[in-house]
Design a protein around this nucleic acid. Structure first.
Lengths: 122, 122
DNA sequence: CATGTTGGTATACTCTGTGATACTGGTAAC
DNA sequence: GTTACCAGTATCACAGAGTATACCAACATG
């Protein structure tokens, strides 16, 4: 490493840190709250209908689910499809964009499982 | 797949889903809020002292930082070390346990960066 | 024809996470 | 001796996230 390279590294390091904090905070903002990740997870697990999603997420209320679904639809994280047969069928599906959270969700599930084992193990 | 295997798969599937939602919600609970992940990230980046951590996280207030550090210390996510030289030196470091969030944080930073690029690209 | 399901909305309430501001006691630097 | 840094604490205040409960219209099931 030359002198200039060192200097560049030193100077660029704080910028990278700033960038990373920024990126992290952005993600936290988009996924904010108790419910968005569980909803995405539920959809990815094949649940498409309102009541199915509701039942698959312990603790969520219809109001919260309704609000979050709306917000996430507005943010292009999922698609709402109405099939006007009788009875009307409403289906929610994740967008490709939303699928990009897959790795985060998997890591979080992994952590949660390990955590439980650890606690149980004590 | 035999009949029994199929049945077992069908029966075990909902249980796995339940388990996964549970794990996900546990993780969300532990990492809840705007600040815990940025704080862990900051510590992992080498910041140890209160004001350094504070400066490294845009938007955080001393009050929030103080609260979160206390809570995280109580939950064994980090260690507080006081060196009673004059002036007193207080240092925070992550525990091994806390390091297990590393993968989640990396995935979230990755997502945040891609998100920014995507938005900039439009 | 009473009951249950679906896809939600309406209203009212709690509460806590977060922010803004100020302050403290000790040390160090200028 | 005034200013600045460290490691926080103390109050106050608020929006909005989340909860609880009830309700609706349309259809299906027994």
């Amino acid at each position: 490493m030359t002198k200039q390279e060192k200097a560049a590294a030193i100077l660029s390091n704080p910028r990278n840190q700033q960038e990373e904090v920024q990126a992290l905070q952005d993600t936290i903002y988009v996924l904010g709250g108790k419910w968005k990740l569980p909803i995405i997870n539920s959809l990815c697990n094949g649940n498409k209908r309102f009541r199915d999603i509701e039942r698959s997420i312990p603790g969520i209320t219809t109001r919260m689910l309704s609000r979050e679904l709306k917000e996430m639809e507005a943010n292009q994280l999922l698609k709402r499809t109405v099939t006007p047969d009788t009875p009307v069928l409403v289906e929610y599906t994740v967008t490709e964009y939303c699928r990009s959270f897959g790795d985060i969700i998997l890591e979080m599930i992994k952590w949660g499982k390990q955590h439980r084992e650890k606690i149980r193990g004590i």
